[in-house]
Design a binder for these strands. Sequence first.
DNA 1: TTAACAAATAGATGACCATCAATATTTGTC
DNA 2: GACAAATATTGATGGTCATCTATTTGTTAA
Lengths: 123, 123
Amino acid sequence: MSVNIEAMNNLTTNNCPSLLMQHLSRQEAEQLSGLFKVLGDPSRLQLLSLIASQPNGSACACELIEPLGLSQPTVSHHLKILYEAGFLDKERRGTWIYYSVVPQTMQALCSHLTIPVEATRTV
Amino acid sequence: MSVNIEAMNNLTTNNCPSLLMQHLSRQEAEQLSGLFKVLGDPSRLQLLSLIASQPNGSACACELIEPLGLSQPTVSHHLKILYEAGFLDKERRGTWIYYSVVPQTMQALCSHLTIPVEATRTV
DNA sequence: TTAACAAATAGATGACCATCAATATTTGTC
DNA sequence: GACAAATATTGATGGTCATCTATTTGTTAA
């Protein structure tokens, strides 16, 4: 489970139109599906949810192990995947590493799924 | 690869708040990740894109085989998964079955990923 | 009812991946 | 440096799934 960073940047910064409005090349489909694949795991969604709902919006990795009920290596593995896909930011403070959610990545993903209102049609 | 229809209905009709605004239970995380898993495949994204970009917004299953470069059973398999997850609608016309995209399902999914503007905070 | 085409199902296979235990690495403190 | 705590890596394993071929089922028309 890994995501090409450059591909993610293409998808999130170039203001790509919705996949519903244009043909997706195989390459584009692979890049985009890679991001959805990252969200296609319940543990990773719980991590995002846990981190985002902290009072200050960030959480230390060690705080996330117990509520998820997974081993430390597994949590570390999921955090890495989320970070490399651009869903999480991280900051080291001493021994601890604090993660926070990058809402822009979510919003960019959504822009691929929704149709602009003025473009909707009745089938 | 299968999606619980009732679970999907819960997620798409109950106006659930964003996963970034509340804790996700394990069950909720499993339901939601199931939908993302469906989108986490390049062939399925290409199918959605192909169908949505047809002039009338719908496409016969047989028209989708050649552009995807996959076998007929594989395309049928993907269409079934997309349909059962609520991403596609289908209508039989004689021998043919026409699929069309359900944009509401996409939008409902997105509502789980975005934070209402007034709720954003500076980290 | 038979032929022809579309779609679905069954079964098999290979690849990917979530998870763990064990270990290594990094960082701060004494 | 030595120890302790947090995080990352390695290697193994079991399950899931995308894909195929072969077959079956469904639908229309002759």
